[in-house]
Amino acid sequence: MKTPVQFRLNGEDVAAFAESGANLLDVLREVVGDLSVKGGCWQGSCGACTVLIDGAPRLSCLTLAESIAGRSIETAAGLRRGAELHPLQIAFMERFAAQCGYCTSGMLMAAKALLDRNPSPTREDVVEALGGNICRCTGYEPIIQAVLDAASGDRRRRA
């Protein structure tokens, strides 16, 4: 039994048929075709599938697809505006904050949720925001630095 679900994905209207009980991760990847969202545990323990739902970071593997009808989803695929990278993407590159890259999409979205609500986070704020996302390669420090860089870069641009 499939259910039609309409939502906004990175600013575009999307309509998809979801199996009843399907999670948002599977619907985004396998129905809509947004492969920037990664699955790492399918049980809400690794953070790789983090997306923003109405601006809040959520684990798409634990989110019922039917529950997002009418809501706005942001994924890593939508961070870039045309050819222009998001400040977080630039900072992640400059800090070499990815190795295998598999956790990166989730990290970026968790970080974006933080910076969207707190443009001047402390290191502790960043650590807290990334605490649900597992990275097995980097040792986290470059990622923390990248998020702090992106925040201070934003402040510089506004100044």
């Binding site: 492969l35 890593a76 695929a77 870039r80 590159m93 070499f96 990815a98 890259g101």
Partner: peptide, 21 residues
């Protein structure tokens, strides 16, 4: 030098084995 794969990683476009429809 920047990693050849870094842009792909930060834009979610690096193609892992499961990224084929």
């Amino acid at each position: 030098t920047q990693r050849q794969d870094m842009l792909g990683h930060v834009t979610g476009t690096s193609t892992y084995y499961d990224d084929h429809r």
